[in-house]
């Protein structure tokens, strides 16, 4: 079963998205979080070494999917992957999915035992999923 890492500029946002994702996964998926720049959660920003720690915490051979909020979160996540040994980097994937919807979908499908690429595909489909009933 794959692991997930939630990356956000805000520690509180990362914790909140983690909370939602954990409920969707029903406790069956390892979900890490890397939010903010400081341990007290007060400084906004993203840090590659914090992301690296989160990846290592949930690491498994099936792979790790990273979900980021935006902007430098993506660059920091890329940096974190570069800091990983090659054999682990191969099994990590940066998702293009929106953070909240992507984390919810990814957690649910990861808990169903789906492989890394498949989980990312359904999470990224959230990019084109409207919220309002009128549009479906």
């Amino acid at each position: 079963m794959i692991g997930l890492v939630i990356v956000s500029h805000s520690a509180r946002l990362a914790a909140g998205v983690h909370e939602l994702a954990a409920q969707m996964a029903g406790g069956q998926v390892a979900i890490g979080q890397a939010g903010g720049l400081s341990d007290d959660g007060e400084t906004l920003g993203t840090d590659a070494s914090r992301i690296l720690s989160a990846i290592e915490e949930v690491w498994c051979e099936d792979g790790v999917l990273l979900l980021m909020d935006l902007g430098s979160a993506v660059m920091s996540a890329e940096l974190a992957l570069e800091m990983l040994p090659e054999h682990r980097r191969r099994n990590c994937l940066l998702s293009n999915a929106p953070l909240v919807e992507g984390a919810i979908v990814a957690a649910l499908h990861a808990s169903l035992g789906e492989p890394l690429q498949a989980v990312n595909a359904v999470a990224e489909a959230a990019l084109s999923a409207p919220k309002l009933a009128n549009n479906c």
Binding site: M24, E101, I104, V105, L108, V122, A125, A126, A129, P130, K131, L132, A133, N135, C136
Partner: peptide
């Protein structure tokens, strides 16, 4: 009066409101 959505997709299911 919505269209039918895929029941295996949590986001589509939420679209039913």
């Amino acid at each position: 009066n919505t269209n039918a959505v895929d029941l295996k997709s949590i986001l589509q299911l939420m679209q039913l409101q």
